[in-house]
Nucleic acid binder design. Sequence first.
DNA 1: CGCATATTTGATAGATTTCAATTTATGTGG
DNA 2: CCACATAAATTGAAATCTATCAAATATGCG
Lengths: 254, 254
Amino acid sequence: MSDTRRPDLQRFLDRLTSRSILTRDEQDAILGLNCHAAHVRANHDFVGLGETVDHASVIVAGLVGRFDQNADGGRQITAIHVPGDMANLHSVVQPQATSALQALSAGTILRVPHSAIRRAAGRHPALAEALWRDCMVDGAILSQWVVNVGRRDARSRIAHLLCEIATRLFAVVATRFAFPFEVTQSNLANATGLTVVHVNRVLRALRQSGLADVRRHEVEVLDWPALAAAGDFTVDYLQTETRPDERLRIFEPR
Amino acid sequence: MSDTRRPDLQRFLDRLTSRSILTRDEQDAILGLNCHAAHVRANHDFVGLGETVDHASVIVAGLVGRFDQNADGGRQITAIHVPGDMANLHSVVQPQATSALQALSAGTILRVPHSAIRRAAGRHPALAEALWRDCMVDGAILSQWVVNVGRRDARSRIAHLLCEIATRLFAVVATRFAFPFEVTQSNLANATGLTVVHVNRVLRALRQSGLADVRRHEVEVLDWPALAAAGDFTVDYLQTETRPDERLRIFEPR
DNA sequence: CGCATATTTGATAGATTTCAATTTATGTGG
DNA sequence: CCACATAAATTGAAATCTATCAAATATGCG
């Protein structure tokens, strides 16, 4: 099960180097990370709430949600992870999970032991920096989610979420396009702090007003500018398009 | 203005060592951080949205809010920082601010140049680790805020917020107690995703039902267990009571 | 084919917002 | 210390959005 060169680690590395500057050595340390693949079932926690984990998980295929809940059992998704993301990167420095991780649809993950990541980061401070930075992008996204559920109505919430995911999947290529999005309306509700019933109605409205057609396996964006406007969406906070000269490195050696 | 030993840095260091294990050397590096104090006016951004900053800010006195907003200008506070916090620690690895920082009431901060923090963290990997870990606690709090605005009603939202702040201020000492909380109802509304009017009504209800009396400068908790229950509040995610043997250190040397 | 899960629709209730006004604090200069 | 200006808190009534409850229809899967 264990490899030394995995294409999926390459994708994770690409994510890191899109924002951070890493030497060849440091990049090799990522690619050489010990890991093994695993399938994850839909609607099944592969990291439980409060559990102490000893590995982080790179998403290879499928979507993963970070789940919290209130006392009544009402579930709230606080983050959605797409392929290439390290879903619980934070667990490297904070192994006790404060949220559960669950696949929104069946998929594949790559488990990377904390020990391997820690060894690499300990040897290469700039790696620790890059991982830390990536965690902070997750933080910026989380912050936007608070705005989304706190200060936007149902239509805007859903539009904003669709825009965020499309952008993070690098799917935005035209005014009209489609991208895979394997999520139930129920999970859409859990991500936006709404009820399923209301999500269903808003989706119909988005379709009828020619903004987007959200189906079971795929989202068809019908009018990107209009959808982005409806969702009050701006792209910058996601840092998906960091120019080479904007990439950062703090720690020596350069 | 610049000192080498500041009591306020000691408070920040205490915060770090409550969760991370640091050697004497590493601790000295924190205490020796170059910095200078500054007053911050109430309702005035001292870090603007989108601004690129070259220093982080330790809160010495007062409360600081992290502000975002939607297209209509509706403001949403996504974090409240209390004395001892480094309000924008994340800016060390991500200098471009995705949220504004504003004092909720007049206060004092300690500006610490990124250069100083980076030098210290570069020399002591375990320091970088401790800072990273602290950022992740902020992330866990943020995650709870999403649950708060997404899946709780007005009364629970406010109760939860009060419990969070009381806990982070280490104010919880009995069933009944008071703690300073210099925040307008308007900012309470911005933190909970409600309107001022409704906040006002919920506060009255909390008072009348004997849970808490929220005044302009101070909150008097009348019945902590009841307030925590109403706010669906559990303490663990805040990691304010990490036992010595639970503190972490990943990087050598031990 | 049949069960389980997901989507859709309707009717009604309820929580929260909005709008508008009034009262109460807070701070400042004379 | 008072008068004034300003910000904050409070209250009421009406409008709206979203939740809740209940049921029917689709869809996928073994």
